[in-house]
Computed example of a mutant assay.
Amino acid sequence: MTSTSRQVWLPAQFTSYAGLPEGLRYARWDGGSVFPSDPAEVEFYVPPLVQDLDTISRPLDRMTSLTVVQALSSGVDGLCAELRRLPGNVTLCNAKGVHARSTAELALALILASLRGIPEFTHAQDLGLWKPEVFPSLYGRSVLIVGYGALGSALEDLLVPFGCAVTRVARTDRLSPRGPVHAMSHLRGLITGADVVVLATELTPATHHLINADLLARLQDGALLVNMARGAVVDTAALLEEVRGGRIRAALDVTDPEPLPAGHPLWETPGVLITPHVGAFTPAMWPRLEQLIRRQLERFARDEELDNVVAC
């Protein structure tokens, strides 16, 4: 490698430089320590594996040679906003598809736990109470998936044994291998018939507070809303109004605000199950991310078009 080779920053978890393309210089950064090299020389930046956008963004103003950011998440709304304020043209790529199966698994777990009353039984266990109750089953229920991409498709795979009637919604009408996908413009009519609504869409100006007071009011009594997308896809104040009275339930892996602060009413509202944005995080996650990074670096070294490019 020569001193003129292009600089790449990788996350601290990256296991080995072995087998990476030649002609590039590599350094690891954990997001907390001093910068491993001059940020001004970095052309390809893979941010550290953290959820804190401030940490990810800390070196961006100094990365004057930056051409590519390879995010480790599927959702990149916050990072998009950071890159838009930078001069020059920076290509942003996400990790679309990498986290789909693990996130779908948690979505299914949240659906089953919420429908079968696991939070109520856990609370009774904490109190030492034997308190039998009857809760609904997932079998044969109608499930509306809003945002039918890799995550939505992976979730439908997991729902097959339960005999659910699945309705799919995405930006535009199309046909998937499992059946029709309806445009988002049909959501208002489709949401009324759903027992379970799963949000798996990206956060954009068009989907900010997509699930508002009007749509929440159209949910049938006893419906379950599951948010695996981004917290701001749901109007939190409107959601609280609906769940407080017990008319609907909610299971949230993401919230708005996030992290959810202590004392926020969502913590104490019956019928709300919360996990702290952990859908993607399993031991199998990092090997899949490393495979993606290696593929992207090979393309970058050959000046080929990258995968998973996001329009900011």
Rank of each mutant, 00 (worst) to 15 (best):
M1E: 15
L10Y: 03
T15Y: 12
S16N: 04
L20I: 05
L20A: 01
P21V: 02
E22K: 11
R28Y: 11
G31M: 02
G32S: 08
S33G: 14
S37L: 12
P39T: 03
A40K: 11
A40L: 09
E41Q: 14
E41F: 05
V46D: 05
P47L: 04
P47E: 05
L49Q: 14
D54Q: 15
I56G: 02
R58G: 09
P59S: 09
P59R: 05
V68S: 00
A71I: 03
G78L: 13
L83W: 00
P87K: 06
G88I: 02
T91R: 01
N94V: 07
K96S: 15
V98Y: 00
A100W: 01
L106W: 06
S114K: 03
L115I: 01
P119E: 10
E120Y: 11
E120K: 13
T122A: 13
A124D: 08
G128Y: 10
G128W: 12
L129N: 06
W130C: 13
P132Y: 04
P136C: 10
S137N: 08
G140W: 09
R141E: 15
R141N: 11
L144Y: 07
V146S: 01
S153W: 12
A154S: 15
A154F: 14
E156C: 09
E156L: 07
L159W: 05
L159Y: 06
L159S: 01
G163P: 09
L175P: 03
P177I: 09
G179Y: 10
S185Q: 13
T192F: 12
L199R: 02
T201N: 09
H208V: 07
L210P: 01
I211N: 01
A213I: 04
L224G: 00
L225Q: 00
N227L: 08
R230V: 07
R230D: 06
G231Y: 02
G231N: 06
G231I: 02
A232E: 15
V234A: 10
T236R: 05
V243Q: 00
R244D: 03
R247L: 03
V254F: 02
E258A: 06
E268H: 15
T269F: 08
P270W: 13
G271Q: 07
G279C: 14
F281H: 15
P283G: 07
W286A: 13
Q291M: 13
R299L: 15
R299S: 03
A301Q: 06
E305D: 14
L306K: 02
L306Q: 02
